[in-house]
């Protein structure tokens, strides 16, 4: 479904990604794990088209995404839940969801999408008129996910959904990620919380200073002594 080949991205002189290659197949949950500054966010933002790419290819189906503007990429079926949630703070919950459905011109489809988001996250329905900035961290994460799902993406990119959340909430969010996947959305999950990510992913890639250093079946990686040492705190 998504194939990234030899992707390199620079910020000025900083080489954030060095010939990164990976693949996400239809229906999978693929985790991309790595420490601070490894290049995880950079990878997702390159796929979403908001960063200029230095070299390499990003193929979605047989379409090359590297010169396609971000809003077109959403139309093709890739949507991202950005790191730190990034809800539109001074807009209401409902308006945030509407923005997620911006690429849909059919009004009825938008209101169906909103209903779906409310079914998945009933908390959002109770707060639909509230400004997003008045939500708790967990609620904001739900809103960010609901918002991204509005465009009915084929591939959902999640950037550190567990960031800054209490363990109970993290568990809840991951359950929902699995549920979204079960309903047919392919997922690429970026996490520092490797333990959680590996527990729900089918496959995983480990990124270190801009390079893929390990990859494989998630369950195997979770047993790998090096991974356990570097990312699972052993």
């Amino acid at each position: 479904m998504l194939r990234v080949e030899n992707l390199s991205v620079n910020y000025g002189a900083i080489k954030a990604l060095k010939k990164v290659s990976f693949e996400v197949k239809q229906g999978e949950i693929v985790a991309l794990i790595g420490g601070n500054g490894a290049g995880k966010t950079t990878t997702l933002n390159s796929i979403s088209g908001i960063l200029p790419i230095h070299e390499g290819k990003i193929l979605f189906g047989d379409k090359d995404l590297t010169r396609i503007p971000p809003h077109e990429i959403v139309k093709l079926g890739i949507c991202q839940v950005p790191e730190g949630r990034r809800v539109f703070a001074n807009m209401s919950v409902l308006e945030n969801l509407e923005m997620g459905g911006y690429s849909i011109s059919d009004k009825k489809a938008v209101s169906e999408g909103i209903e779906r988001a409310f079914t998945l996250f009933p908390r959002l329905k109770e707060r639909m008129k509230q400004l997003a900035k008045t939500l708790s961290g967990g609620e904001q994460q739900m809103l960010a996910m609901g918002r991204a799902l509005m465009s009915s993406p084929k591939l959902l990119l999640l950037d550190e959904p567990s960031m800054g959340l209490a363990p109970m909430l993290v568990e809840k969010i991951f359950e929902i990620v699995v549920e979204i996947n079960r309903q047919g959305t392919t997922i690429m999950l970026v996490e520092q919380n490797a333990n959680m990510a590996l527990s729900i992913a089918n496959r995983a890639y480990v990124l270190e200073t801009g390079e893929v250093v390990l990859s494989g079946i998630a369950a195997d990686l979770a047993q790998d002594p090096e991974v356990r040492k570097a990312y699972l705190g052993e």
Binding site: P69, P70, H71, V74, K75, R86, M99, G100, S151
Partner: peptide, 12 residues
Amino acid sequence: EDYNTAALMGIN
């Protein structure tokens, strides 16, 4: 409010 996130949501 947030230029990049707007783009990520499919806003031109």
